[in-house]
């Protein structure tokens, strides 16, 4: 279980990015985090990934405090962040250097096929489109088979078609290996389609304003009535969270989410 216990994060410049955020994610659960720009979603993932330290409170994985990157936790950044001096295959195999070559190549081939880039193994990152680069980044995070995978808007740079097929791949992967997934997204439909639970955050300071349990059966119908209803509930909550913000804050229209 991934457990975020009353975490505060105040950046050195004084920004209160997270304010008493509390969240328990069960083993094998898919949690989506939605919220407006700047409400601390990336910050939350960085803390869970061990890249940054919480100012107060702590984050534990199965009782073990996370204070540095953990081998069971993978993170897909908001940008692809491929290493330009490595080929696609070497980028994907970057976290597998401890494995013998043959085994590494096998895994790399598998995950590249998973994201539909099997023929691109020998390419340089500069030869990829934005969406392809993001798929390589996804493959790189999948390769070490993390128990917990943190995804920071991994699909936001993709077209609707590629995005939908990657949703299916993530779900396939999840059914096969049951990793815990924490998915940050701007897209309420994506959250409703994929997640067991949707966490709505509000900005300044970043807080969790509401949590929705979606006990919809899988496989889900993207255009089904119950999904539509869930989407509407989440959107309402998002709207609410923006409206209830303390006086003096500049107003961000809900459409910006």
């Amino acid at each position: 279980m991934l457990s975020i216990e009353a975490v505060d994060k105040i950046y050195p410049n004084g920004t209160r990015a997270l304010d008493r955020v509390r969240l328990d994610v069960q083993q094998g659960e898919i949690v989506a985090v939605v919220g407006g720009s700047g409400c601390g979603k990336s910050t939350l993932l960085r803390l869970a990934a061990g890249l940054d330290q919480a100012t107060r409170g702590c984050i534990t994985l199965d009782g073990e405090t996370i204070s540095a990157p953990h081998e069971c936790v993978g993170l897909i950044f908001q940008e692809p962040r491929l290493l330009p001096w490595l080929t696609v295959a070497d980028n994907v195999g970057f976290g597998l250097s401890h494995l013998p070559r043959a085994k590494r190549e096998k895994i790399v081939g598998d995950v590249l096929a998973r994201v539909g880039l099997a023929d691109y193994a020998g390419r340089w990152p500069r030869e990829l489109s934005g969406g392809q680069a993001q798929r390589v980044a996804i493959a790189r995070a999948l390769a070490p088979r993390p128990k917990v995978l943190l995804l920071d808007e991994p699909f936001s740079a993709l077209d609707a078609f590629t995005r939908a097929s990657l949703h299916e791949h993530v779900l396939d992967l999840w059914r096969a290996l049951k990793p815990t997934l924490v998915l940050v997204t701007h897209d309420v439909e994506e959250a409703a389609y994929l997640a067991d639970r949707v966490v709505v955050m509000r900005p300044r300071p970043g807080r969790i304003s509401s949590v929705f349990d979606l006990d919809l059966k899988r496989p889900r119908d993207r255009y089904g009535a119950d999904l539509e209803a869930a989407k509407r509930r989440i959107l309402n909550a998002l709207d609410q969270s923006l409206r209830e913000r303390s006086a003096g804050d500049e107003l961000v229209p809900a459409a910006a989410i």
Partner: peptide
Amino acid sequence: KTVEVGRMFRLSQFQLVRR
């Protein structure tokens, strides 16, 4: 951001320099 990729894969200081 590139260094963070290395940190995410738990590279040692030496590996971070080399890779």
